[in-house]
Design a protein around this nucleic acid. Structure first.
Lengths: 214, 214, 214, 214
DNA sequence: CATGAATGAGGGTTCATTCAT
DNA sequence: TATGAATGAACCCTCATTCAT
C-alpha cells in the first residue's frame, strides 16, 4: 500500500487556511503561511486544492451551504409563527457565532476584490426571501399596509446583518434568546413607545415632511 | 504657495486612483492602472503619495471627514426633532448616493485586509452616537423602556447601512424623502400593524418565549 | 525626461539569451542566467520580452528572416546558372558560419519540444524550393529523367544540412569555395568515377536489384 | 532469476516512457504522464530507473545498439558490393521506419539540451565509417580521385539522415527498394544527365569558379 | 515489490518603488 | 518638477524524488 493519506491533512489545511484568510484576507494570505501553520508542505496544499482561490471558495461555500440549510424553509404565518421565528433566529445567531471566524471572513468578502459577490449574493437572496415574507405578512394584515416592503425588508436584513457582525466579534457566548427577542420586538414594534407611536401616527406623519431638495 | 499644476496633477491622480480602487480593490489595483488612467507618470504618483496605501488612505479619509461633517451634530429632542431627523437622513442618503462609487469602495473595506478597520471604526462611531441618542430618547419616555439600546441601536445602524449599500448600487437618483420616511417610520413603529402590536404586547411577548438551548 | 532607455539593453539581453539558449536549451535556460550574463535585472528582461519563449522566438525569427532573405530568389536556368549556384552556396555557407552559434541553436530546435517545428518548417520550405528547382532542371534535360525528385531533393537538402551542421561547429573559418564546389560537384555528378558510372548504367542498374523483403 | 512480473512492468514503463518522450521531449515529460500511461505507480518507476534521464538513456541506448548492429560490418569492395550496399540500405531504412517513433525522438536529441550529443555522436560515428569507406573506394578507383572525402561523406550521411527523417514521419509503409535505389544512384552518379556531367567536366569545372570573398 | 501521498527546492513572473536624466 | 526605464524582492505553482505502509 501507498503511504496512507493523512486524513487530517485537508482538514488541517482548511483550518489553517481559514485562520490565515481571516487574518490577512485572500490576497495577502501566503500559501506558506497556510502550510506552515498546518504543519504541511506546500505540495500538500496543491494536493488538495487547485489554487489559493479554490481553497477559499471551498471554505466559503461550505459555510454558505450550512447557513442556507439553516435558513431555507419558508416561514408559515400560522398561529405559532412568532414563536417559530424567534426560535429560528436563535438558531441562526447561534450558528453564526459558532462559526464566527469564518463568518467574519465571509462578511468581509474575503477582503479581496473578486469574492465580495459571495456575501453580496447571499445577502441578496436572504433579503429577497425576507421581502417575500413581508409581502405575505402585509396581505395577511399582520404588517402595515403602507410598508414599502423593498426598503424595509432591506433595512431589517441590514439590522440582522449588523447585529451578527457584532456578534461574531466576541468570544464570549452571547445571550441568543435576548438578542433574538430584542430584534424581533424591534422589527415588529419599532423603538417608540406605543403612546408615541399612536401620536406620530395621528400627525399623519411623515406625509407632510417636505423633501430636501438636491 | 500652491502650484496649480501640482494640485491639478494630484486631483487627477486621486480621481483615477478612486476609480481603480473601486474597480479592483486596494490589493489588486496597480499603480500603472492609476497613472495611465490619470495620464500621468509613475514618478508623478510618488511625488504626491508615499505609497499606494497612502493614496488609499487619503481618499478614504477625505470621504469619511465629509461624511462625519454631515453627521456630527448631536440631535436634540425638542419639539421638532422628528422633522429634523427626517431631513438629516435625507441629507445623508443624498451624500452617500452622490459619492456612491467611493462609498461602495469604503464599505467593502477597500477590498483589502488592512483597511477594513476604516469602515468598521466609522460604523462603530456612528453606532455609539446612535446608542447615546437612543439612551436619551428612552429617558425622555419617547422610546420603549425595555429597549436593549446596544442591540437595537446596532440593528438600526445596520438597517441604515444596508439600505445605503443598496442605494449606492444604482445610478438612478433614488427617492430620498420616501426612503428616509420609510426608515424612520420602521424604526419608530416597526413593521406590525398597531392592532397586532397591541395584541403582541398583551401576550407579554416575548418574555415567555423559552430560549433555545445550545 | 525619464531615465533614458538603455538602448543596448535589449541587444545585451538578446545576446545573453542567445548564449544561454545555445548552452542550455530553451527549457533549461533560466531567466537569471540570461539577465545576470547581460548585467541586467530580471525586470529588464520582462520589459523587452513577454516571456522566455518570446525571447527565443524573437531570436529565431530574426535568424530565419535573414536566412530566408539569403535564399529567396528562385534560381534561373540560364547559361550562367552553375556559377551563380556556386556563389549563392558560398554566401549561404558563409552566413551560416557567421551565425554559427545561433544556427546550432535553431538546428537543435531550441532543444525543446515546442520549437522543433521552427527548423522543420524552414527545412521543409527549403526542400520544397529545391524540389521545384530540380523539377525544372529535369524538364530542361539538365538532370536525369529517372530522378525521383522528391527523394533526391530531400537527400540534397539533407546533404547541405549536415555539412552546415558540421560547419557551424568550428570556429576556424572554413574554405567556403572549396566546400561549395565539392557539394555542387557531388550533387551534379555523384561520387563515382565517370567510367564506373557508365559501367553501372550499362548494367541497367539498379532495376535488377531485388527488394529486401520485410 | 528474472521475475516475469518485473520485466513486464519495466517493459510497460519503457513503452510508456518512449511514447511520452516522443510526444513531449525529455524536459517536458512528466513522470506522472509515464506512470499513468503505463498503469504503474511512481514508485514502480523508481524501482527500475535511477531518474527520468536514466530511463531516457536506456531507451536511446537500446535503439542505437540495435541500429549499430545493423550497420557495423565494414563493407567490402568485392564484385557484388553494389548489390550488398543496396540491400543493407533497405535494411537500415526498414529498421528506422519500424522504430520511427523512437527515431524521431532520438533525431531530435530528446528535445533537450543534454542529450543532443547522443544523436550527434552516432551521426559522427556513422559519418566516420562512411569516410573510411569512401577513402577505400577512391583508392580502388571506384570513386573520383578529386573527392574531398570528408565533405562529401558528410553530405552523403546528411542525405541519408534527411531522407530517414522524412521516412519516419509517415505511417504508411514506404517503398524501401525504390528509395534505396534512388539514393544509391544519386550518390554514385549525381543528379545531372551523363551528357551534362561530361560537359561540366570538360569545362574543368569548378576549378575556375572564383571564390566569393568575405 | 508496489503504492501514491508527501515533500520542498526551484524558477517564471509581477509590480511597487527608485532614480538618472 | 516630471518621466518611465530599471530594479529585485516576493510569491505562486510545478514536479522530480522520497518513503511510510
Amino acid at each position: 500500500m501507498a503511504r496512507p493519506a493523512d486524513l487530517h491533512a485537508k482538514l488541517d489545511l482548511l483550518r489553517a487556511a481559514e485562520e490565515v484568510f481571516v487574518d490577512r484576507g485572500l490576497d495577502q494570505a501566503r500559501i506558506d503561511d497556510i502550510t506552515s501553520r498546518a504543519g504541511k508542505s506546500k505540495g500538500a496544499f496543491y494536493l488538495h486544492f487547485e489554487s489559493k482561490e479554490d481553497a477559499f471558495r471551498q471554505i466559503v461555500e461550505s459555510l454558505l451551504a450550512r447557513l442556507a440549510a439553516c435558513m431555507e424553509d419558508q416561514p408559515v404565518l400560522d398561529a405559532d409563527w412568532l414563536r417559530r421565528w424567534h426560535e429560528k433566529d436563535q438558531e441562526i445567531l447561534q450558528f453564526m457565532w459558532q462559526n464566527r471566524k469564518l463568518v467574519r471572513l465571509v462578511m468581509a468578502g474575503g477582503k479581496s476584490a473578486d469574492f465580495a459577490f459571495l456575501i453580496d449574493d447571499f445577502a441578496n437572496r436572504a433579503c429577497k426571501q425576507l421581502q417575500e415574507f413581508f409581502g405575505r405578512a402585509v396581505e395577511a394584515g399582520l404588517f402595515r399596509a403602507d410598508l414599502d416592503v423593498e426598503i424595509v425588508a432591506t433595512g431589517v436584513s441590514g439590522a440582522y446583518d449588523r447585529v451578527i457582525r457584532d456578534l461574531v466579534l466576541t468570544d464570549a457566548r452571547p445571550d441568543f434568546p435576548h438578542i433574538a427577542a430584542q430584534l424581533q420586538r424591534f422589527v415588529l414594534g419599532g423603538v417608540a413607545t406605543p403612546s408615541s407611536s399612536v401620536q406620530f401616527g395621528s400627525l399623519s406623519w411623515p406625509a407632510t415632511v417636505p423633501a430636501v431638495k438636491k
